[in-house]
Design a protein around this nucleic acid. Structure first.
Lengths: 331, 331
DNA sequence: CTGTTAGCGCGTTCAG
DNA sequence: CTGAACGCGCTAACAG
C-alpha cells in the first residue's frame, strides 16, 4: 500500500507538505503543490481514511438511522429510496455512511447508543422518521454530542438540523386538487390519519383541517396507524357516509379503495407519498408525492454543513402532486 | 473519551494486558482478566475501532456491493431484503458494513476500485448478482486482494466463496408443481428467461429444460431480460400457442399474466422470487420463493469465515415453493 | 503470565 | 513557505 511517505519521497518534499496539499492548506506554493499532485497521480495514492480519522479525530462517517419494517412493501420502497439518495450524495461529498436500523438500537440506553456510535467513530447521524415516542433518540439529539439531521421531525439546536417537506401544505394541496377536479359538491370528508406519534401525522392533519375549513367540509378523523388493514376496516365502517376519503399514506389509500370496491360504492380517495407500488395495485387516485431520494440527499448535505461547523437549521423540501394510475407496464 | 490507557491505569496493569483481554488472548490469568473487565465496566470503556484497525491492518469492514435500479419496484424489494439481512447479521458478528451501489463503480478500472476499497480499509466484499459481463468485478475476484463472497455467481477461489440457492432445482420444482396441479395435459411451454449474462438465468434455464424433457414438453425459450414489458410483448406474440407460461422472475410473470388477461385467454403462469409486490398485483400464480434476507445473512457469515482465514467454498441455500395469491390485505 | 517498546498512516504544531 | 518531531489509540512482537 502506497502511503503519504512514498508520495513525499517521490516528490522530494516532506510528509507534512503532502498532507497540506491533500487538505488544501493555504500556505503551499503552486510549484510544490504541482510536484506533489503529480507524485500522487503517478503512484495512484489514495489517503488512508482510517489513519486520517485517527489522527484528526474526525472520521467523516455518518450513520443512517432508518426504521425498516420488513413486513411492509411500501416501507421497503421508501427506505430504499432514502438509502440510495443518501448513499449517492455521500460519495459525492466524500463522506462515509453506515446504515443502522432502529431495531438495532431499540432497548438500548442513551449511554449505550452514544458509546456504540463513538466506538464506530461516527460523528454525524441522519435519523429518518423519529417519532415523538422515541425518547432515547430525543435525548441523543439534546445531548448534542453528534451532528444530527432529522428527516421528518421538527427538532433543532446548535448541532441539529431538520429537513422535511411541508406536510401540511402537501396534504392541503392534494385534497384541494382532488375536490376541484371532482364533479359534485363534497360535504363529508373521512380522514384516515397516520401513526399517532409521528410528526408527519400532525402536519398532515393540520393540512386537512385547513382545507376542510376553507371548503366547509365536515371532517371525521380516524386513526389508521399507517396500516392498510386498519384503513380498510375504517372505510368499511365509515366509508359509505363520506363523500371523499383522504388517507395519510398510499398504503392506507389502497386499503380504503379496496374496501370501497367490496362495498361497491365509489368515492374519490387521496393517498400520500407517491410510491411505485400504487401502479401495481390497479387503482387510480391523487397523491402528494415526496422525492425521498432528494430529501435524503439534502439531509446529507446538511449533515456535511454541520460537520464543517455550521449551525442547525430547518430545511423545507418541496413536494409535487401526482395522479397515480393503473400502470399497464412499469418496466 | 476514555482510552485503553485509562483502563490500564485504573486496573493497575499495562496497556498491552488490557489489549490482550480485549482480544481474548489466551495468556492472561483469571485474576487480572477480572480486574481489567471491572475497570472497563466502571469507566464505560469502548475500544476505538478506528485505532484498532489502523494498528492491526484489519478493519472488519465489509462492503455490500449491490445492483440497485431505482426504476424497479421489485428490485427495490429484493435489494432491501438483502441489505437488511446482511446488516442485521453484521451487527451480530461485530462486522462493520458499508453499502456500495454498482452504479458507483461502473466505469472505474480495476485499480481504481481496489484503491477505493483499500482507502476505506475494507477487507471483505459481498457482491450481489454479479453477471458474466461485469469483467472488472471478475478481475477483482481473481486478484484475490479482498475476501469476497459472491451471491448468485459461481466463482470460487482461495479467498472467494459463493452462496446461492440451487436455481436449476428451484425452477424445476416450481414448474413441476404447477403442472402436477393442473387439470389437463400440457404440451407446449413458453419460457421467458432472464437477463442473458446473469448466472441465475442459466441455472433456471437448465431447470426448465430438465422438467421439459422429463414431461416431454415442447419448449420455446424467449429472452425477457427481467423486464415486465418484454414479458408482456412476448406473451402477446406467443402466449396463445402455449399451454403454460414460465417466467424467470415474478415481475415478468406479472407482465405475462396481464398480457393473457388482455388477450382474454387463460394459461397457468409461474413466477420466480416470491416478492410481496405480487400480492398487490391481483393475480394468482406459483413461484419459487427465495429468502433473500437469509441468503444475505449466510453470505455475511461466509465472509466472516474467510476473514478468519478460511478457504473459499460453495454454499447452497434452500428455496421454497409458494402459491402467491391476491392478498386482500398485507398489513 | 506481564510489561516495554515500536510502529500503523496521517494531522498538526513549531522551528527554521 | 517547508520539514522535523510528536501523538492519535491500539496491536504485536519481544523481553523479563
Amino acid at each position: 500500500m502506497v502511503s503519504i511517505k512514498d508520495v513525499a519521497k517521490h516528490a522530494g518534499v516532506a510528509i507534512s507538505t503532502v498532507s497540506k496539499v491533500l487538505n488544501h492548506y493555504p500556505n503551499v506554493s503552486e510549484a510544490t503543490k504541482k510536484k506533489v499532485n503529480e507524485a500522487i497521480a503517478e503512484l495512484g495514492f489514495v489517503p488512508n481514511a482510517v489513519a486520517a480519522a485517527l489522527s484528526s479525530k474526525q472520521s467523516g462517517r455518518v450513520a443512517l438511522l432508518i426504521n425498516l419494517s420488513t413486513q411492509r412493501q411500501a416501507i421497503d420502497e421508501i427506505s430504499m429510496r432514502y438509502l440510495s439518495g443518501a448513499i449517492s450524495r455521500a460519495v459525492e461529498l466524500n463522506l462515509d455512511v453506515i446504515t443502522v436500523f432502529f431495531s438495532m438500537i431499540r432497548d438500548k440506553t442513551r449511554e449505550e447508543i452514544i458509546r456504540y456510535f463513538q466506538s464506530q467513530s461516527i460523528d454525524g447521524i441522519i435519523i429518518f422518521g423519529m417519532s415523538r415516542e422515541d425518547t432515547v433518540l430525543h435525548e441523543l439529539v439534546e445531548s448534542q454530542i453528534f451532528k444530527i439531521v432529522l428527516v421528518d421531525a421538527p427538532v433543532i439546536n446548535a448541532s441539529t438540523s431538520c429537513v422535511w417537506v411541508d406536510q401540511e401544505q402537501a396534504q392541503y394541496d392534494v385534497v384541494r386538487h382532488t375536490i376541484r377536479m371532482g364533479s359534485y359538491p363534497y360535504k363529508r370528508l373521512l380522514y384516515i390519519a397516520g401513526k399517532k406519534n409521528a410528526y408527519v401525522t400532525e402536519g398532515r392533519l393540520r393540512g386537512v383541517e385547513r382545507i376542510a375549513e376553507e371548503m366547509e367540509l365536515e371532517v371525521t378523523v380516524r386513526d389508521g396507524e399507517f396500516s392498510e388493514l386498519a384503513a380498510r376496516n375504517i372505510t368499511l365502517e365509515e366509508g359509505e357516509a363520506a363523500d371523499i376519503i383522504v388517507c395519510a399514506s398510499d398504503l392506507m389509500a389502497i386499503g380504503a379503495m379496496r374496501a370501497l370496491m367490496d362495498m361497491d360504492v365509489f368515492h374519490p380517495v387521496c393517498g400520500f407519498d407517491g410510491i411505485t407500488l400504487m401502479g401495481y395495485a390497479g387503482m387510480q387516485m391523487n397523491t402528494a408525492k415526496q422525492d425521498f431520494a432528494a430529501i435524503a440527499a439534502r439531509a446529507l448535505e446538511e449533515v456535511n454543513r454541520l460537520l464543517a461547523g455550521g449551525e442547525g437549521e430547518e430545511v423545507i423540501v418541496g413536494h409535487t402532486l401526482e395522479r397515480l394510475q393503473y400502470l399497464d407496464i412499469i418496466c
